[in-house]
Design a protein around this nucleic acid. Structure first.
Lengths: 339, 339
DNA sequence: AATCGACTGACAACCGGTTGCCATCACGTG
DNA sequence: CACGTGATGGCAACCGGTTGTCAGTCGATT
């Protein structure tokens, strides 16, 4: 595509094209959106004029009359959480490929902000992708009833969702720690309103029971590096020799605090993070963590949403997609200290 | 605000309210947007009905008739670059406070994508914030002529801009390295299309001349951690004992590569990054870098843009804002190795 | 009491498209 | 040659608001 300069004059409308070609505006509309409905010669004249006038359809007007906005809202609790970077990139790529615009909203980890954003977006978006919703099951179901929606990391019956299966990986993480000789493990938990957190803890306590090992729950902690200091102190005090941490942000914060306190990682304490975010590979020591295909999850969510929007093309749309997760072992885990 | 459940029925319009109150739609419109224009009793009846019907104005329709979209486009070259996280958060916060919606677009470091995004946004946004534009000066000026716009880190006459003054900090960085005894310094450069890169190099070569020290230019390299490997190898080969690097992403990548190669940082080679992004404080070793008030830059850009949009309120709107930058010394710089 | 103007509400046009419906026309068929 | 048919283009209503204009009401002024 040639680099069209942005002209300063008023953008062209279908009326301008119509006047230039001596046809009715409705014919222009058809020539551009339902080409078969118009004689080929007229159509070509119109298309040429459209190019000449550098015509771009007004998306507002289009949305108003057709009811389709061509936009999809993407809600995330915290834009600055690197976890969501990859998610956002995934949705952005896939939406763009399908000709949709992404409306990104930061819900600030608040159910109220989230609810009002959804309300707002009912008019301005065709569908929604909701990351780690803080809404109640009922509210999410209601939202789903009002408009096409795909949840990410939120498991509610009848709400289409992409689930990153970190609970399954917690078993792997625990086995990894057991194989290193750890006998007392702590789970450093995230926000209470996070369903991922609950699911992960459930899976972990079940797994620990099966394996006959003690796992204590610490927290909750906010999913930020700054929370890592408090988490680290609590972990040390708990007497555990290894921690499975809600996410890498907290884990990285713990790493820093532990170093300050002279607690060696992994010598004195092993740390397992979750998500394998940007930074997990170059922090000190590099973090053993549960790797998630986050960007792919974003792409899958978009695909599922578009299938809802356009059932014809979507075909056999899945309403639930579970993304596998695996443990990436780096240098923050090692044999338990000998007592 | 109460948590309004999202209802499944068709959203209410001013016509619904009008019917309920037995007035004309135009009166409803005025009651809500020009309250003074309507008798207080009618107004209150209408407002009550609006609340009861859970009315939300249709932003598309509003945009179409009023010409104001209530949205601002924010263009960044790469969403997954942590530098832009902070910028995005800054713009998001400030825009939201002013009642605007943020339309985030990733231009993929491409001038073509950027130009077409701007073209697209002319209709759907009231103004634009363009981060690190890849456009030519002329194209950017033309865009500015077509719609309100604030550039970030792009210095073009007559284009309002927020400039993060990293060039000034390069002098500090160089002095820091000189004081540590370094005599051969390399500048690891970023993309050729980046104006920040050019400005930084200019400032650096000027400063080096004044101080009578040799600075060689390496690169260009893409602003990604993956480029760090190539950059590190080139830097080692150049014989320099210290590098000032285009940004922290490349610098962090270099850190990793240098460790792999057994080159000690800062023992054998000192590294200075730029931007102080997420991760610069916890990489290994923690990075000496030029800290920028990035989130603040985003907020300032929004303020400047809103002043353009609403000259009445904006008052004495500045058309250029320079954000100071300072050197944050961490552990990636130390005395030059004795030969 | 007549005049004036402020206040208030309704009507209708408009923003830029989409779409149902109808009129026209050319063509093929019986 | 009359008729049916499909292709093609125009008209007008509509999406949900905004806004200019006008008419009616009412109190105040002279």
């Amino acid at each position: 595509m040639a680099l069209q300069p942005v002209s300063a004059s008023r953008p062209a409308t279908i009326h301008d094209i119509a006047a230039l070609c001596g046809v009715a505006p409705s014919t222009v509309s058809r020539a551009l959106s339902t080409p078969d409905r118009v004689n080929i010669r007229t159509r070509e004249r119109i298309q040429a004029a459209a190019v000449e006038l550098n015509y771009t359809p007004n998306s507002q007007a289009k949305a108003l009359s057709s009811g389709k906005t061509g936009a999809v809202g993407v809600l995330v609790p915290d834009i600055t959480n690197p976890f969501y970077f990859d998610l956002i990139r995934g949705t952005q790529l896939q939406l763009k490929a399908a000709g949709y615009t992404q409306l990104l909203v930061d819900t600030e980890e608040s159910d109220e902000v989230e609810a009002s954003a959804i309300q707002q977006l009912r008019k301005s978006a065709d569908g929604l992708i909701v990351g780690a919703s803080r809404l109640t099951d009922e509210a999410l179901l209601a939202a789903r009833a009002a408009m096409p929606l795909v949840a990410i990391n939120r498991d509610v019956p009848d709400v289409p969702a992409v689930i990153i299966d970190t609970p399954a990986a917690t078993g792997q993480a625990l086995d990894h720690l057991i194989s290193l000789g750890h006998t007392k493990v702590a789970y450093v938990s995230g926000p209470v309103s996070s369903q991922s957190n609950a699911r992960r803890w459930d899976a972990l306590s079940l797994a620990s029971e099966e394996r006959g090992i003690e796992v204590v729950k610490l927290g909750p902690f906010a999913p930020k590096t700054q929370s890592g200091a408090a988490a680290a102190d609590t972990a040390v005090h708990s007497g555990a020799t290894a921690c499975i941490v809600f996410n890498d942000l907290i884990a990285i914060g713990m790493l820093q605090r532990l170093r300050e306190r002279g607690v060696r990682v992994p010598g004195d304490m092993s740390i397992v993070g979750c998500d394998d975010i940007f930074g997990a590979d170059f922090c000190n020591p590099p973090l053993t963590t549960m790797s998630s295909p986050i960007e792919q999850a974003g792409r899958v969510a978009v695909t599922m949403l578009l299938a809802q929007l356009d059932p014809l093309r979507g075909g056999g749309a899945r309403s639930r997609s579970v993304m596998p997760t695996h443990l990436t072992v780096r240098a923050s885990t090692a044999a338990a200290p000998s007592t």
